[in-house]
């Protein structure tokens, strides 16, 4: 045990270190949550499409579907869009005269309900059951946590070493 001043200094260092790690963990938790959402949404989508293809006994016409990955740009119908395209279609330039939004395909899947409402923490018991069945065992505690609502604090799952 050193002099009191040293201990105080060391405590302060540890406190800073603790805060830094908490911040990083928070960030990594939301990264993991997003990956879990993507996994669940994609599996749900594939399942839905497989079922409806089986029911219809044929795949949907190619011009009625859009394969992942894609990006959506949406804007008001009143917006004037000026578009220039290179001959080989490798380059595009869009000019909008009003605001627009960009969304990725995962956002579309979420809006379609493919993430079981987990993205907003609004999840029925049935949804939760489906979601849990779509992830490996090690990720289940996170799914359960996400179903409870948006996470504001750092939580640490205990004893989930099982794979």
């Amino acid at each position: 045990i050193g002099l009191p001043t040293n201990s105080a200094q060391e405590c302060q260092n540890l406190e800073v270190e603790r805060q830094r790690r908490l911040e990083r963990i928070k960030q990594k938790q939301s990264q993991l949550q997003e990956l879990i959402l993507q996994q669940i949404a994609f599996k749900n989508l594939v399942q839905r499409n497989r079922q409806s293809e089986q029911q219809a006994n044929r795949p949907p016409p190619p011009n009625s579907i859009i394969h992942l990955p894609f990006i959506i740009v949406n804007t008001s119908k009143k917006t004037v869009i000026d578009c220039s395209i290179s001959n080989d279609k490798f380059e595009y330039l869009f000019n909008f005269d009003s605001m627009f939004e960009i969304h990725d395909d995962i956002e579309v899947l979420k809006r379609m309900g493919m993430a079981c409402g987990l993205e907003v923490g609004k999840c029925s018991q049935e949804d939760l059951k489906v979601a849990r069945s779509l992830v490996p065992k090690a990720l289940e505690p996170y799914v359960i946590e996400m179903a409870k609502g948006p996470i504001s604090n750092v939580y640490i799952t205990g004893g989930s070493s099982a794979n």
Partner: peptide, 15 residues
């Protein structure tokens, strides 16, 4: 990959 698609109607309903 083959089954990873959305229908046009899904898109329209989402927006």
């Amino acid at each position: 990959k083959k089954l990873g698609y959305v229908r046009c109607q899904d898109l329209r309903q989402s927006f």
